[in-house]
Write a protein that binds this DNA or RNA. Structure first.
Length: 469
RNA sequence: GGCUGAAUGGCAGAAUGGCUAUGCAGCGGAUUGCAAAUCCGUGGACCUCGGUUCGACUCCGGGUUCAGCCUCCA
């Protein structure tokens, strides 16, 4: 039985879909004006795993995963001007880059990936309803605002009331707002900015209304799960609730899931602090699966400290797992007994961990237990080892891990100026000859040469194998 | 200032009112020409002060420290 920590209630709750057997989930995606950093990677990976697990429980076709793209906002406009680039060219470029990064990390495509600019009609409709209901107004400057004080439960998600919020306000108040907390739904276009026609004049939507409109349009006005980074909880998600529930008069989302931040030196990784690491840069030094493992090695709500040290550890841990799979991937990949698998203690423990609010560190611990048994089995019962290996891979797949060929993962790929595979193999051949002649000093010399190139050798009964450090 | 959430062994990171997390690193042993990998074994922790309890790292309260939000942010 799946339990989810619901930000709305602050409690871990049994998950019950609105429509039995079907799950609808919306996650706030990226604003596409720059490359994705590791913080973005975390949202991508976390909700990818959540989706994988939901699909496992409810069936692949019964889960609808929507992750939007914000392709119009101030930052995008500013960046386009800065680059002297057309806005669409800019956003398309970064959407493509985001997809490349997601692919590399093994993140599967969402079922629907709506773009704000493609949902302008729904956005306009929603704003009109809010105005008609007296929840929104047009200010003197032409901008349309949501009147927060008219929505009695405002602050329910952030667990703050309006007084709390206002007392801490550190932003200059726009004078055409009736209340400092009111937020913009429609912004009048300035000269030369992209704009859409509306009842209130040429302009563009505020960020919050985009998500309300897109989610409702894709999933209906009441759906199961809404996710995103913790930093979106307030005001973004709070405002989404105000907008959507203001429009419909009923509940918007049942379960809110927020993932924690990635930190650098105990500080939030963010664009504004400038302490961010771009995914594609990190991929120069670490295999994508290492990043994925690193992200999943802590619970999705906990803070996650980004450092080379921690990525190195992630790599070492993954290496251990892959070592267990070595010499075995070809054995019994398909000939597994899934009936047996369903009952197995490992599967049970793994699912218990995942059922408990997607506890991936605990699930990974089960994977390690399996790998140890697998190593034992390899020398005693090859048949059983094959079955267990298949089971291990099947469970790991729910996390998007161990999907590579073990040997390929361990050997990695040749870095610039490094030894190519055939050069390595040639040296190993030489060493094998020396070995036969029991010329140990020559053996060690060759091993040292390879070691200097970050190639590690392992002598086994079947011969010598190697991997890159 | 207000609000929210954290504090676990050398590091990373879970669970749990009484019983092994797990990984990396360390130590001892097996194995190996020597290593590596693997296996077997092993040391080491629960921020602080009170309270509840037969018993608390785990529940409650105070304190300290840290992070986040109250602006754009995943």
């Amino acid at each position: 039985m799946l339990h989810i920590q619901n930000t709305l209630s602050g409690k871990k709750e049994l998950f019950t879909p609105i429509h039995p057997g079907k799950v609808n989930m919306y996650v706030c995606g990226m604003t596409v004006y720059d490359y994705c950093h590791i913080g973005h990677a975390r949202v991508l990976v976390v909700f990818d795993v959540i989706t994988r697990y939901l699909r496992k429980i409810y069936g692949a076709d019964n889960v609808t995963y929507v992750r939007n793209i914000t392709d119009i906002d101030d930052k995008i406009i500013a960046r386009a001007i800065e680059n002297g680039e057309d806005i669409n060219t800019l956003t398309n470029r970064f959407i493509a880059a985001m997809h490349e990064d997601a692919d590399a990390l093994g993140v599967k495509c969402p079922d629907i990936e709506p773009r704000a600019t493609e949902h302008m009609d729904e956005i306009l409709q929603m704003i009109q309803i809010l105005i008609d209901k007296g929840l929104a107004y047009q200010g003197d400057n032409g901008d349309v605002y949501y009147q927060v004080s008219k929505f009695s439960t405002y602050g329910q998600l952030a667990k703050r009331n309006l007084d709390d919020l206002q007392s801490g306000s550190r932003v200059e108040v726009e004078q055409s707002k009736r209340d400092p907390m009111d937020f913009v739904l429609w912004k009048m276009a300035k000269e030369g900015e992209p704009s859409w026609d509306s009842n209130w004049g040429k302009g563009r939507p505020g960020w919050h209304i985009e998500c309300s409109a897109m989610s409702t349009n894709c999933l209906g006005d009441h759906f199961d799960i809404h996710g995103g980074g913790l930093d979106l909880k307030f005001p973004h998600h709070e405002n989404e609730i105000a907008q959507s529930e203001g429009c419909t008069g009923h509940k918007f989302v049942n379960y809110w899931i927020h993932n924690g931040f990635v930190r650098v030196d105990d500080e939030k990784m963010s664009k504004s602090l400038g302490n961010f690491f771009i995914i594609r840069e990190v991929l120069q030094s670490y295999a994508p699966e290492v990043i994925r493992y690193f992200i999943l090695s802590s619970h999705y709500m906990s803070p996650l400290n980004y450092s080379d040290e921690n990525l190195d550890k992630a790599k070492a841990s993954l290496t251990t797992l892959y070592q267990a799979l070595l010499d075995i991937d070809s054995v019994d990949e398909n000939a597994d007994d899934s009936a047996l698998d369903e009952q197995s203690d490992y599967t049970k423990r793994f699912e218990q961990a995942m059922d408990d609010d997607f506890n991936t560190p605990m699930a990974i611990a089960v994977l390690f237990d399996m790998s140890h048994e697998l190593n034992r089995l390899k020398s005693t019962d090859v048949q059983q080892a094959g079955v267990l290996a298949a089971q291990l891979k099947r469970l790991a797949e729910l996390l998007g891990l161990l999907e590579n060929n073990a040997q390929q993962f361990l050997q990695g790929s040749c870095s610039e100026g490094g030894l190519a595979d055939d050069e390595i193999n040639a040296l190993i051949e030489q060493r094998a000859t020396a070995k036969q002649e029991k010329n140990w000093s020559e053996c060690d010399r060759i091993r040292d040469v390879l070691d200097a190139e970050d190639i590690l050798l392992e002598d086994t009964a079947e011969g010598t194998r190697w991997r890159r450090k």
